[in-house]
């Protein structure tokens, strides 16, 4: 994958972290109102959301540190840049 595609993927991390934590909390709160266990599932959802956020971050940055096909091409010598 070219350097900019990796950059694009990293750009998405912010929203990913926010959304996954919010979803976790919201789902937890919803479950809590159903089963009447007020803070329990909210906390579990928060934890799960945070874990998902970290996992997503890890998956997004992993190809930068550990690229599958050798190191990432540096931005100045890509032939693809001229086309894109």
């Amino acid at each position: 994958m070219p350097w900019w595609a990796l950059t694009l993927r990293v750009t998405g991390i912010g929203w990913f972290i926010a959304i996954s934590i919010v979803i976790g909390i919201c789902a937890g709160l919803k479950l809590d109102t159903w089963i009447h266990t007020k803070p329990l599932f909210m906390l579990i959802g928060l934890l799960l959301g945070t874990i998902v956020a970290f996992y997503g971050t890890y998956r997004a940055v992993q190809p930068i540190f550990n690229p599958p096909g050798g190191p990432v091409e540096p931005p100045d010598q890509t032939g693809s840049e001229g086309r894109g």
Partner: peptide, 20 residues
């Protein structure tokens, strides 16, 4: 657990695309 996270992050991506 890893596979579950994979599934969840796939679904979360849907919303993160939307909200962005």
């Amino acid at each position: 657990f890893v596979r579950f996270l994979e599934l969840v992050s796939e679904l979360v991506r849907l919303l993160s695309f939307t909200f962005r």
